[in-house]
Design a protein around this nucleic acid. Structure first.
Lengths: 121, 121
DNA sequence: GCGTGGTGACAAAAAAGTGCGTAATTTACA
DNA sequence: TGTAAATTACGCACTTTTTTGTCACCACGC
C-alpha cells in the first residue's frame, strides 16, 4: 500500500495498522515500556529490519513514543502514547467482534456453500 | 501476510482486514447491495483481479455475502452479512479515533523532533 | 461486438528476510 | 595488564518472497 487512493480516514488508518505487526506491537506495548530487544523476544519471527520499520511507522503516526538513552550498550525504550493507549480498546473491540463471529461460524464449518439464487428482477 | 504467527485473534482479523481495500469495500457495501461493476466504479484504481480476490477473502471471512443471479448479462450482488454490518461501527470508531488524534497532531506538525533523554539507570 | 463477472499465466513492483558493519563500553579470561 | 568478546539498536546492501498489475480469454445473450 504505497499511497492513498481516497481521502477517506479509514484508508489512512489502515495504512498504518495494516499488516501483522502494528496491532501486535501495540498489544505488547500496552503492558508498558518495552525495549527493542524485548519486542524481538516477544515475537521472534520478526526481523530486526522490519521491527525498526514498523516501530518508526507507529512513531510517525503518533502511536508509540521512542526514547533514546545515551549510553554504553545503547538503549531505546518504546511506549504507547496517549493516542496509542486510546486505540487499544478499539482494537480489542474488533478482536472481540472476530471471536464472537468466529464462534458463530465454526460449528458447521461451511453451511453456506451453495447459496445462490435465481431471481428475475 | 501469508500465515499466522501468533494464536491471537488480532492477528487473524488483521489478516483479513489488512490492506487498502477490505475496509473500503466494507464501507461502500454498508450503503447496501452493490454489484461487481458498481464496486469497480466506486474505486476505479482497483484492478478487477484484486477486486475479486478481496471480495472472495471477505466472503470466506463471513463479512460479505455473494449472490449470483443466473441469467442474461450475468449478475452478481454483494452485501454485508450480519457480521459485516456489526463490524462497520467498529471501523467507524477507529476512523473517528484517527481523526481526533490527527486533529491534535496537525497544528504544530512535528514538535517532538528532538525528544531524547540522557538518564542514568 | 459489447458488457457482465469472472479465471489463469506471466511480469512488475513492493515488502520482507539475511548477513555484515557500527558505536562505546563492560566483562571474560589469560 | 592486555586483549578479545559481548551487548544494544540499529543502517546498508543484497536476495527472496509476496503482492499487485496486465493481458488474454471464457460464456452468455443482445
Amino acid at each position: 500500500m504505497k499511497s492513498l487512493v481516497s481521502r477517506c480516514p479509514i484508508e489512512e488508518v489502515m495504512q498504518v495498522l495494516s499488516g501483522r505487526w502494528p496491532t501486535l506491537l501495540i498489544y505488547y506495548l500496552k503492558d508498558g515500556t518495552k525495549r527493542f530487544s524485548d519486542l524481538r523476544r516477544d515475537n521472534p519471527t520478526v526481523s530486526h529490519r522490519i521491527l525498526t520499520h514498523e516501530l518508526r511507522k507507529l512513531e510517525k503516526a503518533g502511536i508509540v513514543q521512542r526514547t533514546v538513552f545515551d549510553g554504553y550498550p545503547l538503549r531505546v525504550e518504546y511506549d504507547l502514547t496517549a493516542a496509542g493507549t486510546a486505540l487499544v480498546p478499539l482494537i480489542d473491540a474488533i478482536a472481540g467482534w472476530w471471536d464472537a463471529h468466529d464462534a458463530a461460524r465454526d460449528p458447521a464449518a461451511e453451511p453456506s456453500a451453495a447459496e445462490r439464487a435465481a431471481a428475475v428482477p
